[in-house]
Design a protein around this nucleic acid. Structure first.
Lengths: 235, 235
DNA sequence: ACCTGAACACCGTTCAAGT
DNA sequence: ACCTGAACACCGTTCAAGT
């Protein structure tokens, strides 16, 4: 299912196609860090994150087994760097999905969840890494913490606005609702990652719809609480 | 935090304390399979499931590196056997929690979730294994599939009864509500596993309460949908 | 500054041979 | 039937040495 991108090993290239002096890297790779990240992601796509090895990444890039350790002091550092990249892209996708939404606060909440879920589906390998706590240094990465905090902020903001507009019952704290939304969305993403949907009679090709529906159901229940509350409906 | 159980290597014991003929196992272990499972679980508790190695388990039990392969053809088989044990105990805990509950159908739904979450907290290492799709053969284990199906069955049963009693809006399918409950509960359990709660300003000692509250919130939203529905309240 | 080569202490797994 | 011992092809990581 995963289409391998055309991967062209960075050619010893003693002559360059351009007129400029040749790259000529018999020794110095020049962009080893990024090349290793890409190679590692490729391995994760093909065989899963747990099968990523520093040696194999080095082999694919064409350097010695020890070369990566100049850029990544441990295997964990390599995995964490991949996770940072993933978290950044995930946050951007969520922000885009939110930006496109023209509906009310609860529609925006749903858009956030939808963006998150869509990205997790489209970039399964990358998502697995960003949520593979065993393999990365979550607490040690400021980048990682920041990206998560941004998504959390968007979620709580939407829910604060929803409460202010009487779209959810006033007795529910936005923070509590945000945590519920978070748990549900993360749970859905993980269920797919961990292969649980088959057990719930959801076929592989029905998973996106099931995710959407479940998210929509949660948002609907929140909205119903606003009505049951008898809070002002400002529409 | 994990208290190591008194682990007594199975003593060469050429003389037995009882009057019976000595166990005398210089070669045949007698209960190697179970001993390996326990040793592996101990490693998982101390260092995490990803650090479980067949060799280390063999070493702890006092057999050669090749001995385990008579009982577990691959490392994955060993991990899967641990997961089966975990799934069984988890299901029993959930059933107990459900059995103790004297309230209505939604209270029973909540009891199921509470049992699941409590077990996942108390047996974190075991829970990590049962939900570590990368490390186990979920689809290949009939036991695993069965235990998951049983918990699912309890969940849907509670929601069918809740709908019949008008406790949730009739327009919501029990199966859809069950999937939502499942995603939420699994998401909460995974958030702790993956160390996400700190990012949501939930301190370690507040996690159990946050889980309970979030589950309670979901159930309350479901109940509110029943009221908004104008369905008969048979209390 | 960046990379190689060789080494060390590990893995999972296989297989002939022992009991 | 169950286990050992030795081997193979891997790891992550270190470190002196090369460019």
């Amino acid at each position: 299912m995963v289409i391998a991108r055309p991967r062209r090993p960075p050619e010893p290239a003693s002559t360059s196609p351009s007129g400029r002096p040749p790259a000529a890297r018999p020794y110095h790779h020049g962009n080893l860090r990024q090349a290793l990240l890409e190679a590692a992601l490729e391995i994760a796509r093909l065989h899963g994150p747990e099968r990523v090895s520093v040696r194999e990444a080095a082999r694919r890039v064409g350097v010695s087994p020890a070369a990566p350790f100049r850029h990544f002091p441990t295997r964990r550092a390599l995995m964490t760097a991949m996770a940072e990249e993933a978290a950044l892209r995930l946050r951007i996708e969520v922000a885009k999905s939110l930006g496109r939404e023209r509906g009310d606060a609860l529609a925006r909440l749903r858009a956030i969840g939808r963006g998150y879920l869509a990205w997790s589906r489209r970039h399964a390998a990358h998502f697995r890494i960003v949520s593979a706590r065993d393999e990365i240094d979550l607490d040690g990465s400021a980048t990682l913490r920041h990206e998560v905090a941004v998504v959390r902020g968007m979620t709580e903001q939407a829910l604060r606005e929803a409460r202010a507009a009487g779209r959810v019952a006033a007795r529910h704290e936005p923070a509590a609702l945000a945590l519920l939304a978070r748990a549900t969305v993360y749970g859905l993403a993980r269920m797919q990652l961990d292969g649980h949907f088959a057990q719930w009679d959801v076929a592989a090709d029905a998973v996106p719809q099931a995710m959407e529906d479940t998210l929509a159901l949660l948002v609907e229940l929140m909205a119903a609480s606003g009505k049951a509350d008898g809070a002002p409906d400002r529409n």
